[in-house]
Structure formats: C-alpha cells, structure tokens
Design a protein around this nucleic acid. Structure first.
Lengths: 160, 160
DNA sequence: GTGCGAATACTCGGATACCGCGTGTCCGAGTAAGTGAGG
DNA sequence: CCTCACTTACTCGGACACGCGGTATCCGAGTATTCGCAC
C-alpha cells in the first residue's frame, strides 16, 4: 500500500503557491523546475487539484495556477482526496457471505462486517488527522524549521 | 492508494482460526473453500503471516495453519505489517532539496521535512488505531453481530 | 495379532507468468500579450 | 500619439505509451498416514 507520489508533489506545490501571496498565477514549468519534477506529469496532478476546487487555473500566456481559497481552508485531507480519489484504502468485498456463510440467513448480514468496521475505524483516525492539518499549518511549521524558505520561494516564483 | 486484498483475507482467516480453539491446524484448501478464495494465492498470503510469527504452519498430511499466539495478542497492525510490509504509505523523497532549494545551506535541512512530518502524523494515528484492536476484539464484535457464526465456523473446520 | 517398512496422499513453500494501475510523455485548443500599420 | 487587428508565444487540458507491483498459478520438497507383509 503505497500512496501516489503526486500527493507529495501537490502539498509542496500548494506550499509554494501559499508563499506567493499576491494573486499572480505560477506556471507548471516554473513549479516543476523548482522541484525538478517532470513538468507534464506534474501538470496532470495539478489538474486533479483544479477539479477538486483547490486550485484555480488561468490559461493563456502569463497563465498558471493559484490557490482557489486561502491556505487556512485547505486541509491535507482535501489534497489526498483530490489526488488519490475518494475510495477508502480498505475495501470490504464481503467474503463473509461466500462459501461457508453462503447459506446463512440474510439477517446474519444485517449489521456491517466486523472486519470492515475495524479497518474503517483506523482509516477514520487517519482521515481525521489529515483533516485537522491545513496547508497553513504545514507552512508555519516549515518556516519554523527553515525561516529563509519563505523568501526563497517568493523570489523563485516572482514575475521578474 | 488501495490496500492489498490479502489483508482482508488474512483477518478473516485469523478469525476462523481463532474460532477453532483446539490446537488442530486447518489446511489452506479448507480455508480457501470457506471463503471461495483462490487456494494457491491465499497460501502465499498466509506464508507472509508465518514469516511474521502470527501463524504456525504444520507440513505434511493433516497439516495446515494455526495461530502462533492467542488472538488477544494479535493486533490488526501486526496483520497489516505482515501483509503490506513495514514501509510507510507516504514516502518522503526530499524534493525540497531539489531545484529551488538545491543551493540552500545544509543547516536548512537539519529538521525533518514539514510535509513528511504532517503525513507521518496522520499515518501514526492510523497505526495506533490498528494496534489498539486485536483479533479477539474483532471476533467479539462479529459474534455480537451474528451469534451463530462461531458455531458455523467451528463446524466448517472440524476434522470430520 | 503385532511390528515394521514401503507406498501413498496430502500439506506447505517458493519459483514462475499475467495484468491493471500508477508513471511518464506528447500534442492540440485556447488565451493574453506583443507588434505593426493606419488614422 | 492612439486604436485596432493580426501575429505570436505561451499556457492548460486531455489523449496516448510504458513499466512495475499486486494478482494468480503451478510444481517440487517434505511429512503423517495407510496399507501390506513378515513374524
């Protein structure tokens, strides 16, 4: 069970765009260059963020991407959902009904599969933690770790 | 990010083996039949549980698998780790050091990547929830949902 | 009837193919900026 | 000097290949059982 690499890219890109506080969009080319990522593939991932309403895209020359809402309103859960899709990691296939339990009365399956319930409980804890952390939080922590980074980013994405 | 199907199988199988409280081993053939799973592939997954010390395997005729320790001492975390491997779902590739940040002083990277920290925090919540739930817990909940199931299982795996 | 040895049937275990999805790339549609001429 | 239409260059967006890891399968090594035979 490995998470898509796009999630890591997306969070870093969102941080970068959060540092560019003016409303100027930043192109995929510049974003890709600043992390040495394959430009076309990064673009593909960013499109998912646009579809999810996290980013706004501006076409044409001087176009690019910018945050669709303030960083305080973007949670890590939003990002993961946008890139990975909404399906839970653990998907119950109801094998309890197969074979041995095939001829059990329907009433036995009224309540949810206990295995699924337990796994979903764990996944919910994961989701809650992701939902409790915003891009702004991560940004603050990053600046705490390396205060120079905000300036570096602003300079890297500046128009000139 | 989808979890291996083997995890679901493994938990169900462990429940089955927990219901067979005597020390008699159950063969892959019987376990596979009781959930209509591909026998050879289920065997492969169970081998992972053996390597992890969760199951004991007995070769030869009348051989099979049985729990290596009581169900109360087997957590869902153990099972997931055994089947999925120990690597975290989110793996930081340190892209912060690439491109834009390539020429930053080494001291900037003394502390962990904030993105990684946040994602690992969420994953830790997931792990803790998994570690807090044992096979015995799931078994109890399943019996609460469908009291008949314990008897059905015992009968399905009986020697005669 | 009893003990022993070989044949047998059944089990796990690892080595071997298949396939779907994440990864990576390319090209076209569309837009804003830049440019030049005309008024 | 100002306006406007055209050219241009740059952007996003979706459609098209590639490769790896999960999925699925098969066959061999090993053991307990079982059967037959000698005593």
């Amino acid at each position: 069970m490995r998470m898509n690499q796009g999630v890591e890219w997306a969070v870093h890109v969102l941080l970068s765009l959060a540092w560019v506080d003016d409303g100027e969009p930043v192109s995929t080319a510049r974003l890709a260059a600043s992390y040495e990522l394959p430009q076309a593939y990064l673009n593909k991932q960013l499109q998912a963020l646009v579809r999810a309403g996290i980013l706004e895209s501006l076409p044409g020359a001087r176009g690019g991407f910018r945050l669709a809402r303030p960083a305080e309103k973007i949670t890590l859960m939003d990002v993961v959902m946008a890139v990975e899709g909404p399906e839970p990691a653990f998907q119950c296939t109801e094998i309890r009904r197969q074979g041995m339990g095939a001829d059990a009365p329907e009433s036995s399956f009224r309540l949810a599969c206990a295995v699924n319930t337990s796994m979903q409980r764990a996944e919910l804890a994961w989701r809650k933690s992701l939902a409790s952390q915003t891009i702004a939080d991560v940004k603050a922590e990053a600046e705490l770790h390396a205060p120079a980074i905000a300036g570096v980013a602003r300079r890297a994405y500046g128009r000139d």
